[in-house]
Design a protein around this nucleic acid. Structure first.
Lengths: 236, 236
DNA sequence: AATATAATAATTGTGCACAATTTGGCGGCG
DNA sequence: CGCCGCCAAATTGTGCACAATTATTATATT
């Protein structure tokens, strides 16, 4: 009856919860408990936890355990500084070989963004806003760069859950637009400057926001999510 | 008598051998054998191998084992493309806030490079050439960027061992110089262009070079290195 | 009553034995 | 002669039991 859960599924689920900021920072992840909830051996969970630690989504303290990272504003700033550098390089390179096809692709994407904004669909807007940056990264055709961007974007997403006042968690469409037009002119310097100020603007919007701990303890959250995982369709 | 070897030491040693290209590409790393050579349990080696796999210095094939990566010319190209993007972003950002102090620091460094080139000290030249790029990365003050650069530079170093004709494994000092002068003018666009062509020039110098397999099997190499590790000073 | 100290419990880390998988070789069959 | 399937050896993967470490509680002492 109860479906067995693969290691990859555990990783995906925990990763998703962490990136969405669903687990309070500082929460300790006890191997035994999680293993019990998933109905799986401790070693399985152990491996996943160590991987998440390597990816900096968990703080791993030897002999002490794994804790949900508690990103400080300082760390947030460093993340955005890194993104300014990397994404500056990305648009600079893109401008050199910008094609009309890419131009159309980007325009289409931004139409979706505007539509979502017009429809006031905030979750979708947030998703698309982040996607814009990943789209640019993938347009370089460099999977290495795409991977590095993914790492930074993931950690940024985690931050946003704790530092973005709800009304501001979407990139301004106009700012994306200005980057796109600069690319259209194949003006790499301008595109890089636009990207830079864009990221800086997001950064200035960051401020601590109280987290509601209601029903946000590890066991209840994980329990609920695991229910959804092992009973994907409706109950018989 | 025989010193016990820590996990970190195993990682460091294997990592160094891999980056220096001392292990023939495709070589299979059998957990049991390595554990025996180090005089340590298999689990210890296992963890290190998985980490090296995550860092892409080993190819990890499930249920098959770990192999020294065999970088194709194609992968080499992708690596340099990624570096063009990332390092372009780095110098672009550096130019914005370039200080006279940084200018002096970089000039001093290049003096060392020239001295090493003049003295025909090839190993030192190679080391300094790579260091130039890492120095720029660290000047950004972003540890995240420094880390990402380290990853790319490490893998580049590994490539160089297999694809650089011996006479060309050092960056041209003049090319570094042109980057530095562009930075001195705080001309980010020019610096990025110089960096880009510099990396492209290195890339075009790449070509397959036959590797001498003499005494290059895993056991003999590791055995020798481990000897040096456990008997650091002269034998009594 | 507050602090230091020792015993106890909870948690992570490690080695080992066994299970699962792949590889290479051998013989039978078309 | 070649090809397919099967068995045996080697290797990786996993669960479990125990060791080492850290947190917690209780106790004694000033």
């Amino acid at each position: 009856m109860s479906k067995t859960i693969s290691e990859e599924e555990i990783y995906t689920l925990l990763s998703r919860l962490l990136l969405a900021g669903q687990l309070p920072p500082g929460t300790k992840l006890v191997e035994q408990k999680i293993a019990g909830l998933f109905g799986v051996s401790r070693e399985r969970v152990r491996k996943v936890i160590h991987r998440l630690g390597y990816e900096r989504l968990l703080d791993l303290v030897p002999n002490r355990g794994a804790f949900v990272v508690d990103p400080s504003l300082e760390e947030a700033r460093r993340l955005y500084e890194a993104r300014r550098i990397l994404e500056g390089g990305i648009v600079l390179r893109l401008a050199d070989s910008w094609s009309s096809q890419q131009d159309r692709m980007l325009a289409d994407y931004m139409k979706q963004e505007e539509a979502a904004a017009a429809a006031d669909d905030r979750p979708l807007s947030i998703k698309l806003s982040g996607g814009f940056h990943m789209l640019l990264a993938s347009m370089t055709g460099s999977d290495l760069i795409e991977r590095q961007m993914q790492e930074l974007v993931s950690r940024t997403a985690m931050l946003v859950a704790f530092y973005e006042p709800g009304s501001a968690s979407t990139c301004g469409c106009e700012e994306h637009q200005s980057i796109a037009t600069a690319l259209g002119r194949r003006d790499g310097g301008a595109a890089a400057r636009c990207m830079c100020t864009h990221l800086s603007l997001i950064e200035t919007r960051l401020r601590p926001v109280r987290t509601d701990k209601a029903g946000s303890d590890l066991e209840s959250i994980l329990g609920r999510e695991i229910e959804l995982l092992i009973a994907p369709a409706s109950p018989g």
